[in-house]
Each structure stands twice: as C-alpha cells, then as structure tokens.
Design a protein around this nucleic acid. Structure first.
Lengths: 250, 250
DNA sequence: CCAAAAGTGTTGTTTCTACACCCATGA
DNA sequence: TCATGGGTGTAGAAACAACACTTTTGG
C-alpha cells in the first residue's frame, strides 16, 4: 500500500472510528500438541504485534473485535470475550508509537492515533484448522507457539500474559478446550492445553477422572492411531452443555 | 450551577478529556450489617446513577477512577480495580442520554458527550466510616443498601450486578472484606458480607473454620458487647498478607 | 524386544457439609 | 427466665493427590 493511500485511510478513519480506544485481540489456537497465538507484523515495522483495530462509531465493541479477527482469518462467529482494559498513559511506549505512526505516514503528533490509547483486550478461542490466514502485502500473519513469543510491540507481551492469567482463573468453571479442539480429539490433547495454560504438568489419571466428571465430554467409539503407541479413544464435547456454560460466563 | 457555567465546563472538558470513554464507579461500603453502594443524583435529572467521570488525556485510567471517587468522598488511595468495559452501542439508552445532556445545556447531538460511550466499570471497596460524602448544589450523594437499589440511569443496575458477579468469583481467592471493614470487627460482620455477595446464608461454624484457615485473620484479645448477646471476639486482618494477596490479583 | 504413551484402580489425606449443645448477656 | 447470637466439636461424604501395573503399537 502506498503512503498516500494510508494517509487517505487515516483521514477516513477519523470519520468512522471512535477515537482513543482500540481492541487488541489475543487469538488462541491448538495444533501439533501446542497452544498457539496469532500475531501480525506490518511490513513497515520491525516488531510483531497482536491483531488490533478500532471501534466504529456505531459498532458494538465485541463486534469490532470480531471484525478485526474475521478480516485476518475469514472466521465468522468467533468465540471471544473481553478480559481487561489497558489504560495506562505509559502505553503504548510513546516513542515507539510515534515511530510506527510516522512510518505509516502520520507525522502529526496531535492526531488522535498518535496519542494515548485505551485498549480493550479480547481473548478468542478458535479451532486451528478452520483458520485461513489472510495476509496481504502490508501485513504478515503467523501462528506462534505460546512459549516462543518474541518481544512484541508495546505492552503486547503482557497483554498475552494477562489473557492467559484470565483463562487460568476460568478453566475450572468453563469447558476451555471446547472451542480450541476439533470435533474429535484424544484426551491427551485437552490435557496438554490445561498443562500449557497452567504452566505445570498434570497427573494423567487424575486429570481424566476430573474432566470426565464435569459431564462436558462424550466418549466416542472411535480410536486415534499414532505410530508406536497404543490407539487412544476419541472424545467430543457435549455441544449443548458447553454452549450453555459459555453463556453463563459472559 | 448555572447553565452557562455548565456549557463552559463542557467546552473545557473537550480539551482536557479523552473522548468517548468514561469510568463508572461501583463503590461498596459496609455499615449497620448492610452492604451499601454509593450513588449520585444530579438535581436536573430524576434518576440516581453511579458516580462517573472522564479520563483526562494525560491520566491513567485507574487514576481517573480514583479522582472521580476522591472528589465525592475525600478519600485518598482508594482500593479499586477495573472489572469490565461496557461497549454496546445500545448503551446508554440514546433517548435518556440525550435527555440528560439537554438538561445540562448540551443540545448539540453531534457533541461527543451526546454520542455513544464505552464505559469502564470500576469496583471500589472502602471503609464506610472514612467516607465523607461531599455533595454539592448540583449533585446529591447517598449510600444505598445493595438490595434496595432503585431503577438507575442507563444500564447502571446491570453494571452493579456485574461488579457483584466479579467479586463473587474472586472472594475465595482474595480477602474480600479487608478493605470494607474497620480495624477491628466481629466475624459475623465478615460473614454478612459474604452472605450478601453470594446471595445465600452460610453456616456460621463452617464459615468461621474456613475463613480462619486462610490465615488472613488475627484473633484479638478484645470483645465486642452488644445488648442481649454473648460478647464476641474481635478480629483484624493481617495487613501484610492481605496487601500481598491484593497485589497478586490486579 | 523395546520405547512410548494409554487404560485402569486403590488408598490415604484433606476438605466440605450438616448438625447439637452449651454459654453470656440485657431486657 | 428468656430470646438472641456466640463459642466449640464431631462424624460422614466428597474431592483430591499420589502412585503401579498392564496393554498396544510400530520400529
């Protein structure tokens, strides 16, 4: 995208977006036994960052977060919820922020986009295989393993940390994993998600007993075969119960 | 305050406040064995509401919430934390909002203050006796028992509900009550706080055992005498442990 | 045959719940 | 002496943590 176009876009933004507030999205996926986060990098800036966006003047904040992620993944009806609003004046780092704005062609430091922001953090849980990454010429998108996140723009590392901390407090109440896993999955995948988020190993047998006692899981009559191992039973989530549980939380 | 002054104030606001975002404060106190919330009523409007305010352009959001409450209570260093950001376009009710704005002298429906808001809800816990209500000619302030809240402006009833729901999820982790109660108090006061927030009665003996096992409480050598009852032991919170616990949450 | 991960069950410990009896006080 | 709420303890149920042995598979 040429600079001229970007400036036009900024001017256009002025008229349709709510000022001084952004949504920052932490989108989680699970693949290859690893919990991942989707990150974005603009070609004119050297750091990776969370996918972010603004709220349109006539748009619900939740809808704005949906739109931001749909644009990047093609996914409709993403399951997401807000977890914290970040309102310190020290964020984003002023110099870094002006830097990125200047590279976008915005040199007016009084423009609201160059000023302080309040960012509302959204946490999204999606099924990895349904995501079609939609990069374009100015933006690169990539999944990062949760424990291999580089140093990000602004306070985005700590926003991810806060998202994880929030999930941690919720995971004994809501069926975390329901939105992350495919239709059929082995229990070990679910356990890995719990272990990753809690940051500690769980006893396989105790985990299984406890998770099954919640009643959210259905044992299938199918098996998953992996080389060099005993075949393992597949499970599904009880959709109805899960949806009900998610409703009650948000 | 005369209308002229209010308009001047609005114009002034324009320059120093961040647009489109407000902080709404749910301040809890405990008195007479009742959990209470501080509400505000402007003399030009017929409904009670939460104390609200804007964020100054160079002010941390948390600091803004502190300022809003300090102005009304004289209290410094109020313990508060953010619990949710409300970003629906349906709030505040457009008609009601324009109505109140008109009564304040703001007739320009395109002014940002007449438009849609994102409100960040803050929950504050204070010791009732330390609060000096600072009403003025245009604003009345009053404590309301939590179960006697009238129909409030906009979605403020549901904001209070959300604040309570948030506390509910935290009260088995943090020493709720620490900021609400005076230096010395009988356990029954603490139990009433728990019962009010949870909306159910708790077994006196089990509650006591559980709450003491957390280690946050110190049994004193003093007694509280009330007419017609056996004197009851007073407790204090272990300040150091409590502060540490509160840090870890926010 | 071996390494890797899965299936299954027991036991002791801790926590939770429900409940009963006695005590000190002011009216 | 009575009504009110406080102090204390126990027993059964439920949840949790730690742990071992056997099974299936592909290489």
């Amino acid at each position: 995208m040429k600079k001229r176009n970007i400036i036009d876009k900024l001017m256009y933004n002025e008229t349709i977006y709510q000022q001084g507030i952004s949504v920052d999205c932490v989108m989680f996926g699970f693949h290859d036994r690893m919990l991942k986060v989707l990150l974005s990098k603009f070609n004119f800036f050297h750091k990776w960052m969370l996918p972010v966006g603004f709220i349109m003047k006539e748009e619900d904040m939740d809808a704005a977060a949906c739109r931001v992620l749909k644009k990047r993944t093609g996914l409709d009806n993403i399951y997401l919820y807000q977890f914290h609003a970040f309102g310190s004046t020290l964020r984003p780092n002023a110099k870094e922020h002006r830097d990125i704005m200047a590279k976008m062609g915005l040199t007016d430091v009084n423009h609201w986009m160059a000023q302080r922001f309040v960012s509302v953090g959204y946490c999204a849980l999606v099924e990895y295989s349904r995501v079609n990454i939609r990069a374009n010429t100015s933006e690169e998108l990539r999944w990062f393993n949760i424990n291999e996140i580089p140093l990000l723009y602004s306070d985005h590392n700590s926003i991810i940390e806060k998202a994880l901390a929030t999930i941690r407090t919720q995971m004994d109440v809501i069926p975390i994993g329901y939105k992350l896993l495919p239709e059929k999955f082995p229990l070990s995948d679910l356990r890995i998600i719990y272990e990753t988020i809690l940051g500690k190993e769980l006893d396989r047998r105790n985990f299984q007993r406890k998770i099954l006692s919640t009643g959210y899981l259905i044992k299938l009559d199918e098996y998953h075969r992996k080389t060099g191992q005993k075949p393992t039973v597949l499970f599904s989530f009880d959709r109805e119960k899960c949806e009900e549980a998610l409703q009650s939380i948000i």
